[in-house]
Design a protein around this nucleic acid. Structure first.
Length: 401
RNA sequence: GGGGAGAUGGCCGAGCGGUUAAAGGCAGCAGACUGUAAAUCUGCCGACGAAUGUCUACGGAGGUUCGAAUCCUUCUCUCCCCA
């Protein structure tokens, strides 16, 4: 296929990107690829230690998709090797040791979800255990001789941990090297990653040079904060919008982001073009529009991206009904009661609360309603036979028959 | 190899023989107010029980004591300094 001009490609590639290092080299690579009609190898590594992707992952996946749209070769590297090794010291909870089966299952789920964004047909998927597992100890020593401790310690989190006297195991130094080896193996022209990956991406660049390759250009993308507006989006912080979340949840979560995040979400979560972004920015600044309405548009856009237009409208309607008008939703889990049961047991057993203690606390605080009637009696008993709706907090419902 | 410091609830961090389910902060949850925003205020925040309460918990295992997060022994792990 014919490639667009470098400037045209540049517009899409640079959209939303934090840094492109070095810019000039990327221009040259694009120029060369255009002339020789050879697509660039664009690499994105992923960590299959967790099976669920969220909108934060979507940011960098969309960027990879941009390259696909421009006719380049997208390569998804499944980091199954590192996932299998995990963190042998067991200290790092985000890096548990996985079995081969778990890794495979996660990778499968990862690819399926990534397919919501990427063009799977032209995507090249590789597993880094293919080459990393084949290295022996001498290979590893040879590889590590290309890097020094001082350079390793330049990495932000190493510096911090070193200064705060928290342990750093030697093997942790191997991860950036392993990731760099991937770039060498794949002869990557470009590697994408979040800003927190900058160091690792640069190691790949340096290693390629050591192995006499044309070093990759790195493109970093801003990290998207989660719905709390604070921490980066992550399932473990509970602030994520999952790609496979139900439309209503997706919409609801989108509505709970803070005003300051709206513009960023427009840029990173839904890839809005420059015109839309500047319009949003203006609306937020001159308060001609209630920020809530800007957010509603955002919520619809996010749901539409993953579930289609129809679902996005339904999700908004659901939101209006349940949250704005405080009505019960049409669909909710339901149970059939066969004997008199304490309300506390009902909500605990159906996972509306985590423990009976919590259930009691909520009753005490007036957060539990039956058919919209606040109950305050801890010993309230529900009798079978009559259909009622139990509501806990603002958004947990259960139909009891 | 030698010397020193340390390991407390989701996280940070006080406690250093009984009044400690363990100060304080952060995070979390609920209520009020709202735009399921932010900010603010109030309450809760190990489990089980209606409750006096019972059980589990201060890195692991033993021990001293009427009583231990606190003292002793030992193991595991971490950090610092010297070599």
């Amino acid at each position: 296929m014919a490639f667009l001009s470098v400037d045209q490609q540049w517009e899409l590639i640079s959209r939303g990107a934090e840094e492109i290092l070095p810019e000039e080299e990327l221009r040259q690579k694009l120029e060369k690829s255009r002339k020789s009609e050879t697509p660039l190898n664009v690499k994105l590594g992923c960590d299959p230690s967790c099976p669920d992707l969220h909108v934060g992952h979507g940011v960098v996946l969309r960027k990879l998709r941009h390259f696909q749209d421009l006719g380049h070769q997208a390569i998804l590297v499944i980091g199954d090797f590192t996932a299998m090794i995990g963190d042998p010291s067991g200290r790092n909870k985000t890096r548990p040791q996985l079995t081969l089966e778990e890794t495979k299952a996660n990778a499968k789920s990862y690819i399926a979800q990534a397919g919501l964004i990427l063009d799977i047909d032209t995507l090249k998927i590789v597993y880094n255990s293919d080459w990393l597992d084949a290295m022996n100890f001498s290979d590893v020593i040879r590889l590590s001789s290309h890097y020094t401790i001082a350079r390793m310690l330049e990495r932000d989190d190493f510096t911090k941990r070193y200064q705060s006297e928290t342990p750093i195991s030697i093997h942790e130094f191997m991860y950036p090297l392993a990731q760099g080896m991937d770039s060498v193996e794949l002869k990557a022209d470009v590697e994408l990653g979040g800003t927190d990956q900058k160091f690792n991406l640069l190691v790949g660049r340096n290693l390629q040079r050591e192995y006499d390759q044309d070093p990759q250009v790195i493109i970093t993308l801003p990290l998207l904060e989660g719905t709390d507006g604070n921490e980066k989006m992550s399932k473990s912080y509970g602030n994520d919008i999952g790609l496979t979340d139900k439309p209503e949840d997706m919409y609801g979560k989108s509505m709970s982001i803070s005003d300051e995040m709206i513009e960023k979400y427009f840029i990173l979560a839904i890839d809005a073009d420059a015109d839309t972004v500047s319009k949003v920015k203006k609306q937020l600044q001159d308060s001609s529009v209630n920020p809530r309405d800007v957010k509603r548009a955002l919520g619809r856009a996010i749901v539409k991206l993953y579930h289609g237009e129809e679902a996005s409208l339904a999700a908004e309607q659901h939101f209006d009904q349940v949250i704005v008008n405080k009505d019960a939703p049409e669909e909710m889990d339901e149970i059939i009661l066969d004997s008199d049961t304490l309300i506390i047991d009902i909500i605990t057993e159906n996972e509306l609360t985590k423990s009976k203690g919590e259930a009691r606390r909520l009753v005490k605080q007036g957060a539990v309603r039956i058919d919209n009637e606040k109950i305050s009696d801890m010993n309230f008993v529900l009798n079978p036979g009559k259909e009622v709706i139990v509501k806990v907090g603002k958004r947990k419902f259960l139909r009891v028959k």
